[in-house]
Design a binder for these strands. Structure first.
Lengths: 329, 329
DNA sequence: TTAAAATATGAAAAGCTTTTCAAGGAGAGT
DNA sequence: ACTCTCCTTGAAAAGCTTTTCATATTTTAA
């Protein structure tokens, strides 16, 4: 591949002059300028960004670490990141961690070696090794998705408690008295415990005794939603079900339909996430929509500000929206 | 950020020695080795990959250009790429093109500047500008998804004609006589025209006169499937419908159910893609499954071979699988 | 004990771009 | 005609790592 010296030779000027033409950084005799431009055009020369990066100590590259890119939430997130990054002249190195802390830390190490200008990290927990890395690192970090209340780390989060609270309140506002919840695993702080907490809060506010709360724990899969719904119906007569994600909500609906319970006439169902399936399913599923694309855009803006030394809020909450569809009308 | 000179100073040795310790490239006095290792540990030093890349003219980075990462097919594809690449010590720079040729070419330019070792490209058409780029480029290219019969370009493809042919044959094998197709836009060679061609071939083979073929053109959306189904039923009495993708198939099913036509008892439906929704929908949808994850893995293997100067087949076809579910039993 | 071989180590160059600094040339003003 | 300015231009250094080459030291063999 050609370098700037080759171009200089072909155009009969010095490398410095070629550089000046490429970067429009100083006056160059018009005739020479044309000669250089012509050579550039003919050869398709592109300056070596490694050399540039070495010089400026800057790569215009962001590292992005997500658990699983094939999860629609994260692919929306990454889409937002990529598009916003590009708009700001940055590229992204994408890495997946499979939610394994070991691999996450490994990603950080590789990204450090690649000298990325910043890292956007969607993870689950912050182990000591994570913290060690973040502390020792001069690379700006933005953490998404779990409330990492660690030092002044920039984090962008979903207010799971409030979103869940609002979803349940929405059901109560329809005059419903008895609502059950299908939760995620409660050890999962964000999507598990926090969403349960919102349900708890809204229920108590509507005069339910904490001991009378009706809920079953699932694991975010369709089949666990199906099973949970079965258990709930065996024990109680409820008018609505709120599930901690859409898959479990769909499982619940499936069980209800299989057993000739009408949705929404007999029992209303609300999910969480606004998975694309929610809109398509029959009946279409009411849900809480989180805008992951926007989360990506915000992450990029935050990290670029940070890179440029501009102060940013270090705790941001994402908006959400309760979407009413057939399953709860 | 520290550099190798700093480490050398801290350990009281020369940069060369530090380099030898890091790369295990030559014998180093054990005592000094330990001193260096200790400093490396304490400082968390990572060598600057830009400098290395500059020296070796190699970045261990692959460029990946896809139309839209939030499309499940492409996110599976990218997942396969990322995981396989990492296993081979490569990272990926992900770029999205929105299927715009202009932006695709722009991606190539940026990736060239970043000196990626290879580019994996999922696109639609190969314009002259694309070709110019590929011709002038010394960077290995792997093209996925459309049959780019261009020179010795490495391409990985779906055999749309044969997959579609097999799907229709499968329906005929159930003793069905009258099958309609909902095609994609026919100007779209791969997912549009080729899938139609397979349908045509299988139909003729089963004694249908080409003039009697029943098909309507959709645009891959649910609603277009719904409308196409409406038109088909108005004109003909069919026993089965084959759609060029799952969304249109689901639209068709929706129309049928809305009009009290039972699926699969009255009309069987088969889609294409194995979108996650296909499995979940009621009735679950029979479809043609393409393994995009595997396509990603194959792409990486091909490009790494190419980078290392190993000969590879330059035309590969992906396997597919007809998945039978409730909608066609 | 001495020559030869093996081992260990640092200096320096290469890889590519940008920017600073110095110098050369041209034009303007006196 | 001479000096001062402004405009152009090229040489060189910096940024960081690896590897080669040469040197210094130690070990082995005779």
């Amino acid at each position: 591949m050609l370098n700037i010296k080759d171009i200089a030779k072909l155009a009969g000027v010095s490398p410095a002059t070629v550089s000046r033409v490429i970067n429009n950084s100083a006056n160059v005799n018009e005739e020479k300028r044309q000669r250089v431009l012509e050579v550039l055009e003919q050869t398709g020369y592109k300056p070596n960004s490694l050399a540039r990066g070495l010089l400026y100590n800057k790569t215009f590259t962001l590292g992005v670490v997500v658990p699983d890119i094939s999860n629609i939430n994260f692919s929306e997130f990454v889409k937002g990141i990529e598009i916003e990054a590009r708009q700001n002249n940055y590229n992204i190195i994408l890495m997946t961690s499979g939610n394994e802390p070991e691999r996450e830390v490994e990603c950080f190490e590789i990204l450090k070696e690649k000298r990325v200008d910043g890292i956007i990290f969607a993870g689950t927990i912050l182990t000591d090794r994570h913290k060690l890395h973040i502390d020792n690192s001069t690379i700006p970090f933005v953490v998404f998705g779990q409330d990492f209340e660690y030092k002044s780390l920039i984090s962008i989060n979903i207010d799971n408690i409030k979103a869940s609270y609002d979803a349940v309140k929405y059901l109560y506002s329809k005059g419903i008295k008895k609502i059950a919840m299908i939760t995620g695993p409660l050890w999962d702080k964000a999507a598990g415990y926090d969403r349960y907490t919102g349900f708890l809060k809204a229920s108590i506010e509507n005069g339910i005794n904490q001991r009378d709360l009706i809920y079953k724990e699932g694991d975010f899969t369709i089949s666990s939603g199906y099973e949970a719904m079965k258990k709930i119906l065996k024990e109680e007569r409820v008018e609505a079900v709120f599930a901690a994600n859409d898959f479990m909500a769909l499982g619940a609906i499936k069980y209800l339909l299989d057993n000739d319970v009408k949705v929404p006439q007999d029992i209303k169902v609300v999910g969480f996430d606004d998975n694309p399936i929610a809109k398509i399913y029959t009946p279409s599923l009411s849900t809480v929509k989180i805008d992951f694309y926007r989360a990506g855009v915000l992450s990029v803006n935050a990290i670029i500000s940070c890179i440029n030394g501009i102060e940013v809020e270090n705790k941001m909450l994402l908006e959400y929206e309760i979407i009413e569809r057939q399953s709860s009308i």
